[in-house]
């Protein structure tokens, strides 16, 4: 505790919001990131849950303040309160549910229109464990079928119904989502909160892309004297040699 408190002043606070349709696994993604745990049959979030997690990037420590929002329609009107001051957003969809990508796109649109202009947005296609058996190559399409239903412990009631109707397989092609993400300027990952696939990478890449100088400048109260902070931050992404690829993701983000 004392250690955490001591480093608290040095760490850079980053507000991050998770958005997306109900039952796509937002809370599970956060739980995997924060506690490295997975719970089957998680109950729906009410309102929003607030969690924190540190993320170490070379010499810097980021402290994510995470808003995990409820996906139900009736909570939609509360969302601006959560994303208004956010520096990062993770918009989650379910790779087995095409409609959830449409919802994700509408969230992205809303964020780009109304959130902080420097916000870093990542698109996450979750529940990829459900389709990994069925040729998870990047060319997989919705036509693919598999005789073998993946083990479905993450199932929410809606999803169970879907699995029962024989629809549990990939409904959003990786290429399609990737193309959309590139076009809209988003980071893109396919993730599985159940197996942990892609989760740490997701938060680590966001951390790299956050315009830290910009945050520091504005929190110091010195004014944002680098208006290009966001742009340079994102450009820097390609240059920063974090050798994250050689490192195990666990080390990249240890807390």
């Amino acid at each position: 505790m004392a250690d955490a408190a001591a480093s608290a002043d040095k760490s850079i606070q980053v507000k991050l919001v998770l958005l997306g349709e109900a039952a796509v696994g937002k809370s599970s993604v956060v739980l995997r990131f924060v506690s490295n745990e997975f719970q089957a049959n998680k109950e729906p979030t009410i309102g929003a849950a607030f969690l924190t997690q540190k993320c170490r990037l070379e010499d810097r420590v980021l402290r994510y303040e995470i808003w995990d929002t409820a996906g139900q329609e009736r909570f939609h009107s509360l969302a601006p309160m959560y994303y208004r001051n956010a520096q990062a957003a993770v918009v989650v969809y379910d790779v087995t549910k095409a409609a959830s990508l449409d919802k994700a796109k509408s969230w992205v649109k809303e964020l780009q229109r109304q959130a902080n202009p420097h916000i870093v947005i990542a698109l996450a296609g979750n529940k990829v464990d459900l389709v990994n058996n069925a040729a998870a190559s990047s060319s997989s399409t919705t036509e693919e079928t598999s005789e073998d239903e993946p083990d479905d412990a993450t199932a929410t009631p809606a999803e169970l119904a879907q699995a029962a109707s024989g629809d549990g397989l990939r409904a959003v092609a990786r290429d399609e989502a990737q193309a959309y993400a590139t076009e809209a300027g988003l980071l893109f990952f396919e993730t599985s909160a159940k197996t942990g696939e892609g989760i740490v990478e997701l938060f680590t890449e966001i951390a790299k892309k956050i315009p830290i100088e910009h945050i520091l400048a504005s929190t110091r109260g010195g004014g944002a004297n680098r208006p290009g902070g966001a742009a340079s931050g994102s450009n820097a992404q390609g240059n920063v040699n974090l050798d994250a690829n050689n490192q195990t993701p666990k080390n990249a983000c240890n807390c």
Binding site: P44, G47, A48, F50
Partner: peptide, 17 residues
């Protein structure tokens, strides 16, 4: 409401009620 598991499991929640 606050003892429902999704609220209980989170370190903190903020909910309209």
């Amino acid at each position: 409401t606050v003892t429902s598991s999704s609220v209980r499991d989170a370190p903190a929640s903020w909910l309209p009620i």
